[in-house]
Design a protein around this nucleic acid. Sequence first.
DNA 1: GTCTATAAACGGATAGAC
DNA 2: GTCTATCCGTTTATAGAC
Lengths: 201, 201
Amino acid sequence: MNVVNESPRRKELTRLAAQLFVQEGFDRTTVRMLAQEMGIKSGSLFHHFRDKQEILAAVIEEGTQNALTLARHALEQCGGSAEDRLHAMARAHLETLLTDRNAHVVALYEWRRLDSEARAHLSHLRDAYEALWEAVIDEALDDGLIRGDRFLVSRFVMGALNWTVRWYDPEGPRKPEDLAHELIAMIAPSTQAAQAVSTKV
Amino acid sequence: MNVVNESPRRKELTRLAAQLFVQEGFDRTTVRMLAQEMGIKSGSLFHHFRDKQEILAAVIEEGTQNALTLARHALEQCGGSAEDRLHAMARAHLETLLTDRNAHVVALYEWRRLDSEARAHLSHLRDAYEALWEAVIDEALDDGLIRGDRFLVSRFVMGALNWTVRWYDPEGPRKPEDLAHELIAMIAPSTQAAQAVSTKV
DNA sequence: GTCTATAAACGGATAGAC
DNA sequence: GTCTATCCGTTTATAGAC
């Protein structure tokens, strides 16, 4: 249903909605604000979306799908070592979060605001993305690159990455790639990455 | 003003408000919901708080003050090594976040919803707590326990810890102390903690 | 596909009695 | 310190014209 209903107009509106949801939060974003940002009146919005919930669902679907596609692409492009793959995954994650800076952020931070139907419909997408992460973490564990409990390590890593949204300054000197590099240096000290960091100090 | 205005009644109401704010989020929590939880009518609420904003400010002040007090206490009690201190700090942080599970969570996740006056009034408290963290991270860096950029390491660590709120199951087998232990094992592999983890695998 | 107009419900907050 | 009653702005969503 959502795949069929993808007019270019609707896609553009979804993109604008994502921006507002990040800035204000879903609850504080009114349909009037959305409409104004889109250059139409609030009544017209409901020609494109059944209700406000459906806008949120569209944004989150877009954000997760996008993250999934970019992550898969990054994993195909990168080298075959566990470190390469972990780095590629972290970098892709941060780029969708900090550069694109919209739909993926909403997917992470406003998931709770989805009603149960939308959650059921989108959870498979979310699971697919998390499965990709789990696989990369597993490889890094098997390789001895990092150590610890599978469950906890993946959640700590995701937490460190997801929290960047709160403090990252896009105008600052650090790029998403730098952050990915530094995170891996922090948790996998026997890598080239870590050597570079430790000699720098 | 806030220190003076601390009737036991108001403190109890603040505690209940924190619980609802965690469950529903600040924006979705109505004054009617708050009143019902407190066993009074919505009009009576405004005898204790000037407006809804002041309730949020009270919760966040309580949560941050509490985290600060417990962290200071933990640092006084623990051993003097950098690892001991980092562990004590992480453990205290997680306990206020996951066991108490209320006001500190609100302080972290609803800070953005404070108006500018409240933010100005509370930022010194927040800064004091973050300064405690920075000091402990600095000690760990100086000691060689962990490596990397001061700014990034502290934010990655805080992110990993703060994100636990999203997935931690209080009914599960892991205690906050276990999480603190595993996080340090992950980022400081030359410790006893890490040895235990790696031999377990 | 967008507009105007408006319904219907809900939100925070106040006044004054007890 | 709490209650009842209520004001009034805001919100989501709909109806029907263009």
